[in-house]
Amino acid sequence: SLEEAIRRAEEALRKGQTFEYAGIRVTTQEALEKFRKWAEKQK
């Protein structure tokens, strides 16, 4: 689910890792916010 993907992205960010979902790379807090906004639109 998208909620699960967001949780995994947050977890990866805390560990300093890269999270990738549907071709979207989350490597920074800013990218995480963009990913969250994108995920909201997918619902």
Rank of each mutant, 00 (worst) to 15 (best):
S1H: 13
S1W: 15
S1A: 13
S1L: 12
S1G: 13
S1M: 12
S1D: 14
L2M: 08
L2I: 11
L2P: 05
L2W: 15
L2S: 02
L2D: 02
L2A: 04
L2Y: 10
L2V: 07
L2F: 10
E3A: 11
E3R: 10
E3Y: 09
E3T: 11
E3C: 11
E3P: 06
E3I: 11
E3M: 12
E4L: 11
E4F: 06
E4C: 15
E4I: 09
A5S: 05
A5W: 12
A5Y: 09
A5D: 03
A5L: 15
A5K: 05
I6A: 03
I6M: 08
I6P: 01
I6W: 05
I6H: 01
I6F: 07
I6T: 04
I6V: 14
R7T: 09
R7F: 10
R7Y: 10
R7I: 12
R7A: 12
R8P: 00
R8S: 11
R8F: 09
R8T: 07
R8V: 06
R8M: 14
R8E: 11
A9P: 00
A9V: 03
A9F: 05
A9Q: 01
E10H: 05
E10V: 10
E10Q: 07
E10S: 06
E11F: 03
E11R: 06
E11W: 03
E11N: 07
E11A: 10
E11K: 05
A12R: 04
A12Y: 07
A12N: 04
A12T: 05
A12P: 00
L13V: 13
L13H: 03
L13T: 03
L13R: 02
L13F: 09
L13Y: 05
L13N: 01
L13M: 06
L13W: 05
R14S: 14
R14Y: 08
R14V: 08
R14I: 09
R14P: 01
R14D: 08
R14H: 08
R14F: 08
R14L: 12
R14G: 09
K15I: 10
G16M: 04
G16K: 04
G16Q: 05
G16R: 03
G16S: 04
Q17N: 09
Q17C: 11
Q17Y: 12
Q17T: 10
Q17D: 11
Q17R: 08
Q17S: 08
T18D: 12
T18V: 15
T18H: 13
T18E: 13
T18N: 10
T18M: 12
T18R: 06
F19R: 00
F19A: 02
F19P: 01
F19Y: 09
F19E: 01
F19H: 02
F19V: 02
E20N: 05
E20T: 09
E20M: 07
E20A: 05
Y21I: 07
Y21G: 02
Y21E: 03
Y21N: 01
Y21M: 05
Y21A: 02
Y21L: 05
Y21K: 01
Y21H: 05
Y21W: 13
A22E: 11
A22P: 02
A22R: 10
A22M: 15
A22K: 12
A22Q: 13
G23C: 11
G23D: 05
G23R: 03
I24F: 15
I24L: 08
I24S: 03
I24Q: 08
I24Y: 11
I24T: 04
R25N: 08
R25F: 13
R25K: 14
R25G: 04
R25V: 15
R25S: 12
V26F: 10
V26D: 00
V26T: 01
V26M: 06
V26G: 01
V26Q: 01
V26H: 02
T27F: 06
T27R: 07
T27V: 07
T27K: 07
T27Y: 07
T28E: 03
T28R: 02
T28K: 02
T28C: 06
Q29D: 07
Q29F: 14
Q29I: 13
Q29K: 11
Q29G: 06
Q29E: 12
E30K: 08
E30T: 08
E30N: 07
E30F: 06
E30H: 08
E30D: 11
A31F: 05
A31K: 05
A31V: 06
A31E: 15
A31S: 15
A31Q: 15
L32G: 00
L32D: 00
L32N: 00
L32A: 01
L32Q: 01
L32F: 10
L32W: 04
E33V: 09
E33A: 10
K34W: 15
K34I: 13
K34R: 14
K34F: 15
K34S: 11
K34E: 14
K34Q: 14
K34V: 13
F35D: 00
F35N: 00
F35S: 00
F35A: 01
R36I: 15
R36Y: 06
R36A: 05
R36Q: 06
R36G: 01
R36N: 02
R36W: 04
R36S: 03
K37H: 10
K37W: 10
K37N: 10
K37P: 00
K37M: 13
K37L: 13
K37G: 07
K37T: 09
K37E: 14
W38A: 02
W38Y: 04
W38E: 02
W38R: 02
W38D: 02
W38P: 00
A39E: 01
A39Q: 03
A39G: 04
A39H: 03
A39D: 01
A39W: 08
E40P: 01
E40A: 09
E40C: 08
E40K: 07
E40H: 07
E40M: 09
E40R: 06
E40G: 05
K41S: 15
K41A: 15
K41T: 14
K41Q: 15
Q42I: 13
Q42P: 04
Q42N: 08
Q42R: 08
Q42F: 11
Q42M: 14
Q42L: 12
K43M: 15
K43W: 14
K43S: 13
K43D: 09
K43P: 09
K43Q: 14
